[in-house]
Design a protein around this nucleic acid. Structure first.
Lengths: 126, 126
DNA sequence: CCGAGGCATCGACAGGCGTCAATCTCCCGG
DNA sequence: CCGGGAGATTGACGCCTGTCGATGCCTCGG
């Protein structure tokens, strides 16, 4: 231990009161973690590049080179993170991306560089 | 085998040629993964909120509640990802964030929703 | 020249995450 | 009513990563 006397502020000066609360940091990290995967990024890109703006699982397993359960798992993660919507039509499940979800995330990232930003606390959470 | 005759395109229609290459997806995922951590997000926020725009390790261990090696590890990850710069002044190492790094990432995320976007291929890589 | 202190690195451990094979459920066509 | 097929779920395995304790390096003050 060796305790920590009054010379704790040895190097810098400001007490460094961070603008990001721990709870908010965890939420934002979870949203980012949903995107921080090559398979999920390509999955979003595939759906975004589709002509109809939606795609079913059986069409995604081919281009991604992944098995069906894996694709289903990634879709579930993206739906849970608020990036995709799931619509069951007959036997097939069609996934479409929610417009604005990525935009709000971009706004949060840009506001990080601005000290005392507006409302970065409760964003990326439509 | 049951083979797969011409009914391969059973559900959808388009061959779904994704705009994101696998190599590009891996690179973007690695950049996002550097941010997808509560400790690193708070670390960036602390440095951004600092009056001088920079902070040394010994000042970050306190607010983050992490040990010194852990903070040093996170700083290394962020420097390697291109979000922070490391400047050794005397005994102390001062970290400052690179302006524009988060902005370019925001641009990439926004362009994902635009089919046939501009240059999302080689971004977030200053 | 030598001691002290801040930072980076190493080794180890626990937890989470991505992936697949196997199985189950649900819906449609005949 | 029954068979087939698409998707979701479960269980297991392996890898990656966050965390800490211990140690080494490097710089500054005396």
């Amino acid at each position: 231990m060796l305790d920590q006397p009054t010379d704790a502020a040895a190097c810098a000066s400001a007490p460094l009161a961070g603008g990001l609360d721990l709870d908010d940091a965890v939420a934002l990290a979870q949203t980012l973690k949903a995107l921080a995967d090559p398979a999920r990024l390509r999955l979003l890109s595939l759906i975004a590049g589709s002509s109809t703006g939606e795609a079913c699982v059986c069409d995604l397993t081919g281009p991604l080179g992944l098995s069906q359960p894996t694709v289903s798992h990634h879709c579930k993660v993206l739906v849970d993170a608020g990036f995709l919507t799931r619509e069951k039509r007959g036997v097939w499940a069609y996934y479409a991306l929610i417009p604005g979800a990525l935009d709000s995330l971009s706004g949060v990232l840009s506001s990080t560089g601005a000290p005392g930003g507006p409302t970065a606390t409760s964003a990326a959470r439509a």
